[in-house]
Nucleic acid binder design. Structure first.
Lengths: 199, 199, 199, 199
DNA sequence: GATGAATGAGGTTTCATTCAT
DNA sequence: CATGAATGAAACCTCATTCAT
């Protein structure tokens, strides 16, 4: 493994374990088995490391999400795939996600910020993917919603909130996998005009 | 205003504007118009200030939430009240909430932590309130859900995620007030399948 | 007990337990059950407290030493009384002595210093007392030494060194009571005209 | 001279002149001609500097003491060599010794302490050396004592006390070199059984 | 490409002391 | 007599970053 990779790996582990601020560049160098100065040969700054971590996982996230969504035909199935994928991803990339949820928000305090732009770009792609799922669902009748864009944001917010809870909440969270699926299905289900039928 | 209040007020503003780490105790002292040492006369440490900010807003949040929920009879109305209240609170206490969403997670990196305990205690209360709303809704037939506890956590996660998006996301978020209400109503509505099954 | 006495008592205990520098005036106030400011009403400064502690125990030390020495007639018995007394005193006033041995030397770093003068005055008295014992011993034939002054200083140094070892040394020190007595007796014994015996 | 050595040298001088507490790390940096931070690059803390000073002089002390003792055959001569050596050392290493006598005791206030361990280790070696001198003396008939261990501690206490007086006492101390030698010789001299011989 | 000694700005915290009440 | 809120100087230490090698 190249020195650069060793640095990224060590940083990812230490950031996840102890937090960005609680990890010094010296800690990273030691954990990576490189000299302190080497970090600044490969990265412009400490922030540059976290940027690289986010860039890579954002890219992976979007690519894999697209792939998963593409495996299904019906809109509602795609939505369910999105939910499932997030669940899986929060396990396979828990370290990166932890850093993203715990240490990234703090970066939003400064106005201008490459990190912010990176996350915005990634977020926009995710929103678009969810919107497409919903559109497909409306077209095939498996989904009903009055406002696609809003629903996409709500789903995105829900996913974000749940990941946060799972990875960071001091509360004890039960396993919500199935319940979330049900919650969303019902929220997006075509109005079953049911009662109408009654009359 | 007492010096202690001045410190809290200044800290709240500065933390919200620039972030906890980007705000030095000297900045706070200057903004509050007190000597630097005065901060440490009133608070054990810099962390003590953020603890007090969270303690106060957590207390306010729970009290007001209880009050709002108490104004309605039917379960579904109570749930809607919860959603509305969070919307209102994220405007009236945006600074405190911003600090909570942006700077608190980082505190979760350290294992033992009074801040964590405080937030856990508050979170537990909130979950309980939502659960009661759902129970009421089930009793009066305005809500249907297979698992009260899970639904409460999902709603809580959704609320958290949406607040996060509103206050911190680099994405442009549309006004979701009405849509969220609708989303939840549908997700919790009693299954009207009655008739479906009929035919 | 008056507040002033309470302060002295608390300070003596805390200084002995934790050291002068490791004890803050606030600690003392709390332990004494008085307000922080009260300390500075009764004492000019933190140093003033330690000064008072030394003044009192120095006074007691000299008075009791004189008394003990006065109980014996022969010089060598007086010397033995001095040794015994120091042993007893280092138990009855261990806290004060500990402070004297541990925290006082550091005060000697500054040139001008009331504490220094106080200790010098006390020390001079002690030296004089020991010299008188030796003189008596020479007169009555129970002691032999070529230089009274020097012997007094040596005995004083020995006493100081032993107290230091007993109260502060990280080494494990055996009980030296009897051995020290013997050591000094032999060192001061009139030359037994050994060679005489030889013929 | 390397920066690290410059720091040690400056610190030794300043600690000796003004005391450990009265010397700030900034003072040391200035005196050493290095940046403030450089101190903390080479030493973990301010205490780390005094630790290194003690470590070095303790090592030197023991090595030289052993050498001096080794130059003589008879026990009593070895003991005299010990006394002479301490006299010489307290002149050649007066700064280090001053720090040891003045500022080290205060460190003993805290229970766990690397400094304490270091001094204990050194002290144990010194005691052992003195014991060996006494043993030799008993074997060759130049020394008589009923308890080697105790005598070693007494001699050690005497040496410590005398050094303390010479370097720190506010009293005016006469030159005791010869007298101390005589004092110890007499205390340790084989009982000249002289009078016994009389019988 | 890689190193590691050196930097120095900046941060939090401590604490003896003051003073208005 | 006594208080305790307030002070501000000064202390130690951290750490991202630089740069000569």
């Amino acid at each position: 493994m190249s020195r650069k990779e060793a640095i990224i790996e060590a940083a990812t582990r230490l950031f996840a374990e102890n937090g960005f601020h609680q990890t010094s560049t010296l800690d990273i160098a030691e954990a990576a088995g490189v000299a302190h100065g080497t970090i600044f040969y490969h990265f412009k700054s400490k922030e540059g490391i976290i940027y690289e971590i986010f860039r890579r996982s954002g890219q992976t996230y979007v690519a894999e999400l697209k792939y998963e969504v593409g495996r299904y035909q019906k809109g509602i199935e795609k939505i369910e795939a999105v939910l499932r994928f997030n669940n899986a991803f929060s396990r396979s990339h828990s370290k990166q996600l932890l850093i993203f949820l715990r240490d990234f928000p703090e970066k939003l305090a400064s106005k201008e910020n490459k990190l912010k732009d990176l996350v915005k770009a990634t977020g926009d792609q995710v929103i678009k993917i969810i919107e497409q799922c919903l559109e497909t669902g409306i077209a095939d009748g498996s989904v009903d919603t009055s406002n696609i864009k809003n629903s996409a944001h709500i789903l995105n917010g829900l996913i974000f909130g749940l990941m946060h809870m799972n990875l960071l909440s001091p509360l004890e969270i039960p396993d919500l996998t199935y319940s979330v699926d049900e919650f969303c299905r019902r929220a997006l289900a075509p109005v079953s005009l049911p009662t109408n039928g009654l009359k």
